[in-house]
């Protein structure tokens, strides 16, 4: 028997790449001014260069996976690309030091809404390869509109002069968000609760089995 160890090479390279892929979000988690454990490490950071690199990496993956949503034909693949986009948007929140919003994005959006979407895909497709073709004219019109929209927005942003605000070092506390939700935003908070209740009943009613 020949022990084919050469097969180790590709899987191990893939595994290393996978670990690096995991390392990137882990590093991004606190780059946005999370309080460092010790005084010393805080001053040892080389400027905001690290933040900048992490932002570019995460933003690139966000945009590429959003483009992947546009390009892919299969709905499940679209959902997987959307998974990637949503996760990276969550990491962007962490980079913006909005840790609570980031965690909620992960737990509600990625863990809840996306699973619901994939569930919907599975319930409503006849075969995994069911495709819905779009007319090329429509595609090109949509492309022109969206590229135009994007470039106009970028032009507007580049001409704007935003007031420069100093980057804070510490993130927002969860407690502040909790207090704000139960004081200033009490009415919308309760309205959202009622809305969720209505949605729960409504969705159950819509999707119920008809009794024949």
């Amino acid at each position: 028997m020949v022990l084919r160890l050469h097969k180790l090479t590709i899987p191990s390279l893939v595994a290393v790449a996978g670990l690096l892929l995991t390392a990137a979000p882990a590093l991004a988690l606190s780059a946005g001014g999370e309080a460092s454990p010790t005084e010393a490490t805080k001053v040892a950071a080389p400027g905001s260069l690290f933040d900048a690199i992490m932002f570019y990496v995460v933003a690139l993956v966000t945009v590429v996976s959003a483009l992947g949503v546009c390009i892919s034909k299969n709905v499940v693949r679209m959902a997987v690309w959307l998974f990637c986009t949503l996760g990276c948007v969550g990491l962007l929140y962490f980079l913006l030091a909005a840790t609570f919003v980031g965690a909620i994005q992960f737990i509600v959006y990625v863990g809840g809404t996306l699973v619901l979407l994939i569930f919907g895909v599975m319930l409503t497709s006849k075969s995994p390869w069911a495709r819905y073709e779009t007319h090329p004219v429509e595609l090109s019109a949509a492309l022109v509109v969206c590229v135009g929209l994007f470039s106009t927005l970028c032009l507007v942003f580049s001409s704007m002069r935003w007031p420069v605000v100093q980057w804070e070092t510490e993130g927002t506390a969860v407690r502040d968000i909790g207090v704000a939700l139960l004081t200033r935003y009490l009415v919308p908070f309760e309205a959202a609760a009622v809305l969720l209740f209505i949605v729960m009943v409504g969705a159950a009613h819509l999707a119920r089995q008809e009794k024949k």
């Binding site: 966000t62 679209m78 509109v145 590229v147 994007f150 927005l153």
Partner: peptide, 14 residues
């Protein structure tokens, strides 16, 4: 803006 454009493209073509 990139996310917005991609979203509108997806909404109008799928």
């Amino acid at each position: 803006a990139a996310l917005l454009s991609c979203g509108i493209y997806v909404m109008s073509t799928k």
